[in-house]
Amino acid sequence: MEPVLDNLDLYVSGFWRSLEIVLWAAAGSLALGILLAAFRVSPVPVLQRLGALYVATIRNTPLTIVLFFFAFGVPAAFGVTWDFFALGTVGLVVYTAAFVCESVRSGVNAVDAGQAEAARALGLTFRQNLSLVVLPQALRTVVPPTGSVIIAMIKNSAVVGAIGVSGDLFSAYRRMASALGYERLPSIAGTAVGFLVMTLTAGAILMVVERRMAVSR
């Protein structure tokens, strides 16, 4: 592991850059995923179909295709001049949101239909119904699967690096292995450790949240 320790700052700065991608992508995919889930359970058929179409399309497309689409297809077709960091993060959000949507939707469906019905009968609007009655109750069933989706997303973010974001954990490996000429195995191991730190931390946070929710009602 000597080469890694000698170039620790390369990995540390790569870690922060990757973390930045992950945090933006997590926030974005949670927001978009919840919105899509709201579409899918809304009383408006057009929105339902839009949500279903999105999930069916994205969930059945390989991640690399989605990322290539955003990293190369979108700039070429629409003249977008964002950097790889932004394009890759957007691609990751678009991909992950489909999975967040499905886990939120399954949690919403697990809430007794009588709850939403009582809320409707009181005169709450669809949005109030979701935010005040259904989602708070869905939360407990939603957190574990959504946590898994986010952890998978952290791992997927390595592909964003592979496509060409500079300065992240994956490009630290590339720099080590090609430009600086170190051995590949320890170089990639350093990158792996960086990702492990993120996924294990995410897993630990998830466990704490789950335990909190089990205690409170």
Binding site: A121, G123, P136
Partner: peptide
Amino acid sequence: LARLRSDVGMVFQSFNLFAH
């Protein structure tokens, strides 16, 4: 519709109180 519904109360067989 939500506004009109608020004028019509409903009591269900299974109570449907908000559990949380």
